[in-house]
């Protein structure tokens, strides 16, 4: 009556079991085949070094498609001219960096040689400041609400997450249609006998809407992270505080916020890095306009390197190195703060 382990010869096997057995046999065959190569290899390089062998393919891909272009970019940043290949481009040392950083007053782009670069920087600083702040606040509030036992909680979670699934281009086109002169909002305003508002022609309105749309599109992602953080807080702590008569605000300040802080920190850093990289959505929605009101760093790099004539690859590469350094600083701060909090 006893059946041997690993035997699949029972006549009473279901179709599912047969399919499973079939795939298992294929899997076992391939594994044994791999053994033929890997066992001798392990003997030669040692079992500890096998890890490097497994990592090698990924490292190769990373090296070819990320590391090498990055190093190439450093080199391009020190060249000038319109030639595409490095051999056709004269070496100019740090001239591109000097041009980018040549300002009488860094706070007034009009005094800078590359004024558009500095407009892009200050626009990016403004965008990052308000967008990240708004994003974290809205994501936190939404997560707190959806963490409560409200009716239709699953539905609302899906609704708030849905924009994350949309392409940034689609998001921008939707909102362009809503905000333009003959868009949805103006149609409503006119139907209410109100004045038409040119949202995309007024610098202040455009700055507001670019931030708003960005928060709308990405908030669901950060909300989910925070929701996971909230749900990891043990319920008995709240029960204890309820027994002690703590108010909801005291709960939030004394329990939720401190225990959520590591998650909140991750959200903050992720949102910050993503905000600095803002491009596609704004490019479609306003294309940097009106004037340069929503002209950000990545668009400066893109315009300088690709859409301007002549295409100034060297200057664009130098600007991208500076942007990379900025992101590196953010990442290092994140690591430092992360380690500090671990130490605490």
């Amino acid at each position: 009556m006893t059946q041997k382990s690993g035997s699949y010869s029972s006549p009473r096997r279901s179709v599912g079991e047969m399919i499973r057995a079939f795939f298992y046999e294929i899997y076992a065959f391939i594994m044994n085949l791999a053994d033929v190569v890997l066992t001798p290899l392990q003997r030669v390089i040692g079992s500890r070094n096998m890890a490097y062998f497994f990592v090698l393919p990924n490292l190769l891909i990373f090296g070819i498609f990320v590391l090498f272009p990055m190093l190439l970019n450093f080199r391009y940043a020190m060249t000038s001219g319109t030639g595409l290949f490095l051999s056709d481009r004269p070496f100019v040392g740090f001239a591109n960096y000097r041009a980018l950083l040549n300002c009488t007053n860094f706070f007034d782009p009009n005094t800078c040689v590359e004024d558009r670069f500095w407009r892009a920087i200050w626009n990016t600083v403004f965008f990052v400041g308000f967008q990240v702040l708004g994003m974290v606040i809205f994501a936190l509030v939404t997560a707190l609400i959806l963490n409560r036992g409200i009716r239709g909680r699953g539905f609302f979670r899906s609704v708030y997450f849905y924009p994350v699934l949309l392409s940034p281009v689609v998001v921008a086109l939707i909102w362009k249609w809503i905000l333009q002169r003959d868009g949805l909002i103006n149609a409503v305003l006119i139907s209410l006998d109100q004045e038409r508002v040119n949202f995309l022609l007024n610098a202040d309105w455009t700055k507001f809407w670019v931030i708003f749309v960005s928060i709308w599109a990405q908030m669901g992602f950060y909300m989910l992270i925070l929701l996971a953080g909230l749900q990891s807080i043990p319920a008995d702590i709240y029960e204890a505080s309820a027994i002690d008569g703590a108010s909801p605000w005291q709960d939030f300040r004394g329990i939720t916020l401190p225990l959520l802080m590591p998650t909140l920190f991750v959200v903050l850093v992720l949102a910050l890095i993503r905000a600095v990289q803002v491009f596609d959505q704004v490019y479609v929605l306003t294309n940097g306009g009106p004037g340069t009101a929503t002209f950000y760093m990545v668009q400066y790099i893109y315009n300088t390197g690709f859409s301007g004539q002549p295409q100034r690859f060297g200057l664009a590469a130098a600007a991208s190195v500076l942007l990379g350094l900025t992101l590196l600083i953010f990442t290092l701060i994140q690591l430092w703060l992360g380690r500090s909090s671990e130490a605490v």
Binding site: L201, N287, G288, G289, N303, S307
Partner: peptide, 11 residues
């Protein structure tokens, strides 16, 4: 009309 010159960003 402002949309053409002012609303186009850098393009």
């Amino acid at each position: 009309i402002p949309d053409v010159w002012m609303g186009a960003g850098g393009s």
